[in-house]
Simulated assay, not measured.
Amino acid sequence: MPEKTMQSDEVLIDRIGSAGMIRLNRPKALNSLNLGMVRIIKTAMADFAADPDISCVVMTGEGERGLCAGGDIRAIYQTGRADDPDVTQFWREEFPLNYTIAHYPKPYVALMDGIVMGGGVGISAHGKFRVVTERTRLAMPETGIGYFPDVGATWLLPRAPGEAGTWMGLTGLEIGAADAIQVRFADVCLPSEKLPEFVAALGGLAGDAGDAGVQAVIDGFAVPAGESPLKLNADLSNRAFRFDTVEAIMEALAAEEGAFAEMTRDTIARRSPTSLKLTLRLLRLGRDSSSLVQCLEREFTAGVEVLRNHDFYEGVRAAIIDKDRNPQWMPAALAEVTDADIDRYFMPKHAVLFPDHRL
């Protein structure tokens, strides 16, 4: 039985043997993150890091549907609509948490079972050990709600092989376990039915087991993830997504044959034109960046500007509020979004998130 050390309604903090457990506990909201949850996670991670008896930290989600569907965009929508001056506070604390996970001193194990989207990627894909299952459904779906991939995704996506990350960022489509490993958002596949046994095995490690001890446990449970559709279509996506404008990418997709190209083009055509152009620029800048911090700072600047404009509120309305799935983007066409329109998303109007880091 787990030995309880700390608990709240929305995040359960406990331990199973030497494994420090962080359990997101909003299953009806697909474990979507809010500011209070971010703060609890940060505190728990600091406590676990200082405890010599803790061998590793395990991030998981309660319920049967997934780890985390992302940040609570309904709350951001509501505070933004109300002109609440604290509307960006969630990102101000979420993004540093993503950095903490990327640089955590102990083995950090993310169980990416079921739905893992947006902010759910931020609390998993930056970790040392990323575990997917046959039920994993991972996505950065932000262009469909008038936003862009954040939580450090503009650092992660450009580091996927070829242009797979560009495909993910622009389409926002879900991928499974094999593709998650292919794009380097995950490391290994485990059967979902074995997760409790896997966590128990982690809990049996000595406090100083380190990365090698955790890896040995993982190796004992790992199974093949299957065939990766993105790998099968790599040549096509590399040809079509190598360009630095969305218009050129769409033109290249139109020249390709087959169902994958048609599905990809049709999907992108439904996304916010502003979000598409902003996302592509962020991905290209992320490719040339030297650190995660650079990308997080850039994403925060862009996010602040997103809240001043139409498409995010319209996208959330269509997807979450009214659920009519029929957003009316403004501008409605790629040709109507100019370079100058996108430039303003890169002009900081706020204090930096990481004042102690050189950019």
Results as ranks from 00 to 15, higher is better:
294 Q>K: 13
263 M>G: 12
330 M>C: 09
297 E>N: 13
321 I>S: 09
330 M>E: 12
322 D>T: 15
259 A>P: 00
293 V>W: 06
295 C>I: 06
304 V>M: 11
294 Q>F: 10
308 R>Y: 00
290 S>C: 04
313 Y>W: 00
263 M>S: 11
282 L>Y: 10
318 A>I: 05
284 R>W: 08
299 E>G: 13
315 G>Q: 06
269 A>S: 04
302 A>M: 11
294 Q>S: 13
321 I>G: 08
273 P>V: 05
325 R>A: 09
278 L>I: 12
315 G>K: 07
331 P>M: 07
319 A>H: 13
301 T>P: 03
297 E>P: 10
322 D>R: 09
324 D>H: 09
268 I>Q: 05
320 I>D: 15
322 D>Q: 08
263 M>C: 05
288 D>E: 14
330 M>R: 13
266 D>T: 06
270 R>Y: 01
290 S>I: 02
298 R>T: 15
282 L>T: 11
256 E>H: 07
273 P>W: 03
271 R>W: 00
307 L>Y: 02
317 R>M: 00
289 S>C: 09
254 A>I: 01
269 A>Q: 02
315 G>L: 02
270 R>N: 06
303 G>H: 11
321 I>R: 08
302 A>L: 11
299 E>V: 10
332 A>H: 08
260 F>P: 02
275 S>R: 12
329 W>E: 04
273 P>S: 14
316 V>C: 05
271 R>Q: 08
297 E>M: 10
304 V>W: 02
261 A>S: 10
332 A>I: 03
301 T>R: 08
278 L>S: 15
279 T>Q: 15
280 L>R: 13
274 T>V: 12
319 A>I: 06
329 W>F: 03
308 R>I: 01
332 A>G: 12
321 I>N: 11
291 S>V: 08
326 N>V: 02
327 P>C: 09
326 N>I: 01
328 Q>C: 04
322 D>I: 01
272 S>H: 00
274 T>G: 05
328 Q>H: 11
256 E>T: 08
